[in-house]
Nucleic acid binder design. Sequence first.
DNA 1: GCGACGCTTCGATTATCATCAAAGCATGGC
DNA 2: GCCATGCTTTGATGATAATCGAAGCGTCGC
Lengths: 239, 239
Amino acid sequence: MAAGGEPKPDTPALRAARIGAALAAPARARMLLHLLDGRPRSSTELAAVGGVGAATASTHLRRLEAARLVEAAAAGRHRYYRLRGPETGALLEALCVAAGGNAAADMARAAAPAAPIRAARSCYDHLAGILGVRIHERLQALGWLQRGAGREYAVTAAGEAGLEALGVDVAAARVGRRRFAFGCLDWTERRWHLAGALGAEVLAMALRRGWVRREAETRALAVTRTGRRALAARLGMQL
Amino acid sequence: MAAGGEPKPDTPALRAARIGAALAAPARARMLLHLLDGRPRSSTELAAVGGVGAATASTHLRRLEAARLVEAAAAGRHRYYRLRGPETGALLEALCVAAGGNAAADMARAAAPAAPIRAARSCYDHLAGILGVRIHERLQALGWLQRGAGREYAVTAAGEAGLEALGVDVAAARVGRRRFAFGCLDWTERRWHLAGALGAEVLAMALRRGWVRREAETRALAVTRTGRRALAARLGMQL
DNA sequence: GCGACGCTTCGATTATCATCAAAGCATGGC
DNA sequence: GCCATGCTTTGATGATAATCGAAGCGTCGC
């Protein structure tokens, strides 16, 4: 089967048609529209909104991935899909408009997360949002976290010293059988932030030292003036 | 076959999927992209760019029409298709961008007609462009032209007098076996302008009286100050 | 390790669709 | 009136794809 096949000239029209075909199935359209708010969803959830079985959804999602309309991130036994790039979002919005209902596009915009909850929030018991993602990046850039198999992390010697100096109780994170440190997909930023026992200790430290403060009624976190200064001075981070 | 069928709830996702399906065939994508410059094309021409036979093209075009992506105008034994509404153009451009090639979108924009040629031009030997369409409208509104079968026109008694007073040689248009007056689809305005022997006489008058002047090297026509004043005073037209 | 769970692959079934040749139907030119 | 032309409809054929059940494969929780 390998030898030859079609010449496949791949003109713009052919690429356009491929994308059109990817949008053509109602189940796939429902999935894509459901992803318009930017949040990643698992295969199971997308199967539900698509109104099809898990097997069918899997086929659809591979097809959307092949058409480069979505991209997937494996996280444990889950698989999270999200729209790929802003072009896809623009395409879907144009599609909604052409379909007569600007309602869908408006709805998507309304469903976009508000600024405060994007800036910083808690995810279970660790830091998430822009702040969470930035800290996660910074710890790797400093060489304090070393990525192991999968999305697991180990703390280097420099990291151990540095984190303890900040007031993070790394030793406490090691007791118990909880996973020590791993990457968790951030649903507003679509990148990874630090989860696990170590992530929880980092958030505990930040609250204890007054770097962040919990907002009432939400998972949003406010970064204090103290926090902003400390992040700059001790981690070299400009928020 | 009429009774019942599916319930057909018609959610936004379903409408989106229908549009996606309309874009899905390579032949249809080629046709649509070819229409991106706004010019109407005949079924035969679209069949050629689609790379399919006339029968297949006909099916495709009916489908695009059903999806409200194009609309058709019958003109004699030809049938001209054009993109329907600006939303369709926006959708196609978003599709091109998502397909990786912004080239197609740029190309389409480049192919959009320049302002002067849109404003007024000659089409064979009669007036076209915005000016041509406006005059055509005005002559009907004044009751000077009366629409007959198809797109043929007859000149009324009032029309005969009015046109002669303007300097149009209506009698000259009647000699010979040339079609007297009929509607011609304007490719920038996508509406009708006046063609045939009478249309030629109108343009001849406008040139003779200095209402319009031919631009060098193009089919564009410049409306002179004299022309603007005459159109306002004698036909009640504000350009 | 073991079972539960999330997800994917495989196989089979069914529906849809793209395509063309041939025939039909208008329109325009003479 | 007649023929050529542009377009559509019809009928048949082959390809594609949507769907699900069942089985397979990692991963997590214990």
